[in-house]
Design a protein around this nucleic acid. Structure first.
Lengths: 186, 186
DNA sequence: GTCTATATTAAGATAGAC
DNA sequence: GTCTATCTTAATATAGAC
C-alpha cells in the first residue's frame, strides 16, 4: 500500500460509517484498515487500544456533533417550537432521512467495552436532558417534559429500527414532523 | 465432553438467548457450543449450514411463539380492548419486563444472511398487520389503524433500545400500559 | 447423533524497517 | 507516521472414530 495520510476527522468519520451499520463485533481491523486507507499497524500506532479505542473516539465525535448541531440549537433565542423544528432538520441530516441507523442502538449491542456502554449511556442521558429542558422552557411541567423527552427519543429510536428492518423510512419522517408538537406546548 | 443430548426446542431457546443479546456477529459457534452443551461438530451435524441456519431456526421459533401467544390472542371473542391488554401481558413475558432486547432489532444489524434479513422483515410485517387488524376491528379507520400499529411497534422497539442503553425499563412498561388505548378506540 | 482431532481462514496485535 | 512481515489466538468448518 502506498504511503498515505489522513486527518483524524476523516479517519473517525469513516470508522463511524462502518460501526453504525455493522456494529462493534461486525467491524474488524482489516475492514477498518481498508475503509480508512491505512494499514492495521498504522491504526495501532494512532490508537494503541485498537478497535475499542477507535470506536470510543468515533462516538466522542458524534457526541461533539450533537453538541454543536442539536444541543446548541436548543439554546438560541428563537421560540421553543422553532428551535425544535430546526433540531428535527439536523436529525434528518444525521440519520440521512432515516436510512442510517442510530449509533447508540447499534453500538449498545453487547461486544464493546464497559467504557463504550457507559459513554453511550451518558450521551443518551444528555439527549434526554436537552429535550426535557426545551419542553420545560416551552411551558410544560417538569414531569410532563421528562415524559415527552423520553417519548420523542423512544419514537426516534424505534422508527429507525423499523426503517432498517422494513426499508421504510416513513415512520421516521413522521416522527420528525411531530417533534415540535411533542416537545412544546401548542 | 460427556455424550449429551438435547431437544430441538431447548437447543434453539439457548441459541436465541445468545443471539438476541449479542447479535449475529457477537455469537460464535464456540459460544453456542458451550451454551447449548454440544460440541461444534454436533451442531454442524444438526445444522449443516452452521450459524446461519441455527439463527434462522431460532427466529422461526420466535415467529411460532408470536403466532401462538400474540396473533392467536388477537382473534379470540373478547373485546378488542381486552385482547390487546392480554397481548401486552404476553409481550411483557417475551421481553422479560423490558430487560431482554428485541430479536428483530438486534439481528437486523448487518452480518447475517440475506435470508435472515428477509425473515425478520416478514415477521415484523406480520406483527404490523396483526396490530392493524385489531385496531380496525375496534372501530378505527383503515388508515388510522395502520398508523396506530406502526406507532405501537415503534414505541415498543424504541423503549427496548432505551432499556438496553440506560438500564431503565420504565418507558417500556409505560408503552405496554398505553397499548390498549393506542390500538383501540376509547 | 455425538464425540475428538484437525484443517483453514481471519481476527487482534506487535516488531522493526523506512 | 506509515509500511511490510509476522505472531498468536479464535473463528468457521470438516474427517472420521465411537
Amino acid at each position: 500500500m502506498a504511503h498515505r495520510t489522513i486527518s483524524e476527522e476523516q479517519l473517525l468519520d469513516r470508522a463511524l460509517e462502518l460501526f453504525r451499520v455493522h456494529g462493534f463485533e461486525g467491524v474488524s481491523l482489516s475492514r477498518l484498515s481498508e475503509a480508512i486507507g491505512l494499514e492495521k499497524a498504522s491504526l495501532y500506532h494512532r490508537y494503541p487500544g485498537g478497535k475499542d479505542q477507535i470506536v470510543l473516539a468515533a462516538v466522542a465525535r458524534v457526541a461533539q456533533w450533537f453538541g454543536e448541531h442539536v444541543f446548541a440549537l436548543l439554546k438560541t433565542d428563537d421560540s421553543p417550537r422553532r428551535r425544535v423544528a430546526l433540531v428535527a432538520e439536523q436529525l434528518r441530516v444525521f440519520y440521512r432521512d432515516g436510512t442510517q441507523p442510530c449509533v447508540t442502538d447499534v453500538l449498545s449491542i453487547s461486544g464493546g467495552s464497559e467504557e463504550l456502554a457507559a459513554t453511550l449511556k451518558i450521551a443518551l442521558q444528555a439527549w434526554l436532558k436537552a429535550f426535557g429542558e426545551i419542553a420545560r422552557e416551552s411551558g410544560l411541567s417538569s414531569s410532563v417534559s421528562r415524559l415527552r423527552a423520553e417519548e420523542a427519543i423512544v419514537r426516534i429510536e424505534g422508527s429507525l429500527v423499523l426503517a432498517r428492518v422494513l426499508g421504510d423510512t416513513k415512520p421516521f419522517q413522521r416522527v420528525l414532523k411531530l417533534l415540535p408538537g411533542l416537545l412544546t406546548v401548542a
